[in-house]
Amino acid sequence: MMSAVAAGPAVTGLATGFSLILAIGAQNAFVLRQGLLRSHVFSLCLFCALSDALLIAGGVAGFGLIAKRLTWFPTVMSLAGAAFLLVYGAMKLREAWRGDYAMVLAGVSPTLWKTIAIAAAFTWLNPHVYLDTLGLIGAISTRYADTADKLRFGAGAVTASFVFFFSLGYASRFLAPIMQSAQAWRVLDLLIAVVMWSLAVALIGGL
């Protein structure tokens, strides 16, 4: 059994991971939507969690210090991320405007590879994910001089990502009973469009 001392870094990593990932964002909204469709949920949650794991590992390994030296990196990622969010938000707004949800209500969703491609864009074109994982988590991990403690901290943060994404993806199906009408899906897509555009404006405004 892990001692209280050894559990410290792991618990800190778990709490840090949850605190960073709980905010409603583009990636979370997409996972929620796919969860409601019950389509490619496992693959999508696994991809998002593994992506976080790679970034967290990079932050704990000290790559955050390298990222800070690339002064052009935040600007490029912000512009690319904002462009994608604006386009995706416009797509959701168009779907809400058209109101044609026959395929959605029938359970039809994008193919697995298209789903993963969209998730990849939400993940890797989001500059905040780099600030959170490579920057913040990397910075917090520096308080642990011992390599074993660093690994425990990183493992805790990675665990938070896995628990969150799989919980979001699979728990969202409990909302399915209230998503049996085109009107409900229209409201959801409108909310997603607002989230996407708000995030895009925030990214551009931060330049």
Score class of each variant (00 low, 15 high):
residue 13 G to F: 08
residue 140 I to C: 10
residue 101 Y to F: 15
residue 118 I to T: 14
residue 98 R to H: 11
residue 74 P to R: 01
residue 181 S to M: 05
residue 56 I to F: 06
residue 109 S to C: 09
residue 95 E to T: 11
residue 26 A to E: 08
residue 201 V to Q: 14
residue 163 V to Q: 06
residue 161 S to K: 05
residue 182 A to L: 07
residue 29 A to N: 07
residue 130 Y to R: 05
residue 160 A to Q: 08
residue 124 W to M: 10
residue 143 R to T: 11
residue 36 L to D: 03
residue 163 V to I: 12
residue 93 L to E: 02
residue 123 T to W: 02
residue 87 V to R: 10
residue 76 V to S: 10
residue 55 L to C: 05
residue 140 I to H: 12
residue 131 L to K: 07
residue 204 I to D: 00
residue 125 L to C: 09
residue 136 L to Y: 09
residue 190 L to G: 05
residue 144 Y to D: 03
residue 76 V to I: 13
residue 3 S to A: 08
residue 50 L to D: 04
residue 49 A to K: 02
residue 113 W to V: 14
residue 77 M to R: 02
residue 158 V to A: 12
residue 156 G to L: 04
residue 59 G to M: 07
residue 93 L to G: 00
residue 23 A to G: 12
residue 180 Q to F: 04
residue 180 Q to K: 13
residue 46 L to K: 02
residue 165 F to D: 03
residue 76 V to G: 04
residue 155 A to G: 15
residue 69 R to W: 07
residue 92 K to A: 10
residue 10 A to G: 10
residue 60 V to N: 08
residue 164 F to Q: 10
residue 34 Q to C: 07
residue 10 A to T: 12
residue 47 F to P: 00
residue 176 A to T: 12
residue 184 A to K: 03
residue 164 F to N: 01
residue 8 G to F: 06
residue 163 V to C: 12
residue 75 T to R: 15
residue 201 V to Y: 13
residue 122 F to V: 05
residue 87 V to Y: 09
residue 87 V to S: 09
residue 116 I to H: 10
residue 134 L to M: 11
residue 81 G to N: 03
residue 201 V to A: 15
residue 16 T to H: 12
residue 105 L to T: 01
residue 89 G to Y: 01
residue 18 F to W: 07
residue 39 S to I: 04
residue 178 I to C: 10
residue 75 T to A: 14
residue 124 W to F: 15
residue 30 F to C: 00
residue 196 M to E: 02
residue 40 H to Q: 09
residue 90 A to N: 05
residue 186 R to N: 05
residue 106 A to I: 06
residue 131 L to E: 13
residue 23 A to D: 06
residue 202 A to W: 14
residue 139 A to S: 14
residue 200 A to T: 04
residue 61 A to L: 15
residue 173 R to M: 15
residue 149 D to V: 07
residue 28 N to P: 10
residue 111 T to P: 06
residue 81 G to Y: 05
residue 162 F to W: 11
residue 30 F to T: 00
residue 9 P to Q: 05
residue 110 P to C: 10
residue 44 L to Q: 03
residue 55 L to M: 15
residue 191 L to E: 01
residue 128 H to A: 05
residue 162 F to Y: 13
residue 125 L to N: 03
